[in-house]
Amino acid sequence: MIVTSLDTLAIARVTARKGRTADLTRTVRERYGIDLPVGPRRAKSGNLAFIGIGVNTWLATSDKELDGFAKAVRDVVDESATVSDQIGAYQVWRLTGQPVRDVLAKLVSIDLHPSVFTAGCAASTSGSHIPVTLWCPAENPGSIELAVPRSYGHDFGHLLAENAREFGFPG
C-alpha cells in the first residue's frame, strides 16, 4: 500500500445560498464544465473537482492554484453561494495498492467494495472518532483519496499504519 500526501491541493467549502442551488449548478456547469454532484459524489474536470459533502454543500478542490483559490471560486459563484477557504484545514492523502479498501474497512463503517464504492463515489463519515471525507477518483479508480482535518492528521496516519500491518505495511 502506498500513501502519498497531496500537499498542494487547494480546498474551499462552497454552500449554496438559500434557494440558489439551481443558479449555482448552472454557474458551475457554464464556468467550470462540471455537473455539480447531487449527493455524496465527486465530479472532476481538468484541475477542478467538486465533492458533495452535505445538503447543498461541496468541497471544491484544485490541483493547480493554492492561495488564491477560494477568492477565485468566490468571484465565479458570486451571489449563488458562500465560499469558505479551507486550504489550511485538511491533510489529504492518496492511497493506492491492493489492500487499501481492506485497510480502510477497519476504520470507516461504509461499504467500500469495488462494486459499491465506485469511481466518482464520495462519503463524509468518521473513522475511529476522526472525521474523514473520502472519494474514489474517476481519474484513478484504483486508488482512494481522503481528507482528514489537519489536527487529526498525525493520529489518523498512525491508525492507517497500524491497520495496514496485517498487509505488510511498515508500522
Partner: peptide
C-alpha cells in the same frame, strides 16, 4: 434564514 456555516477551526 439565508445563512451558511462552515467550520474554520482547522483552517
Amino acid at each position: 434564514l439565508d445563512v451558511q456555516l462552515a467550520p474554520a477551526t482547522e483552517q
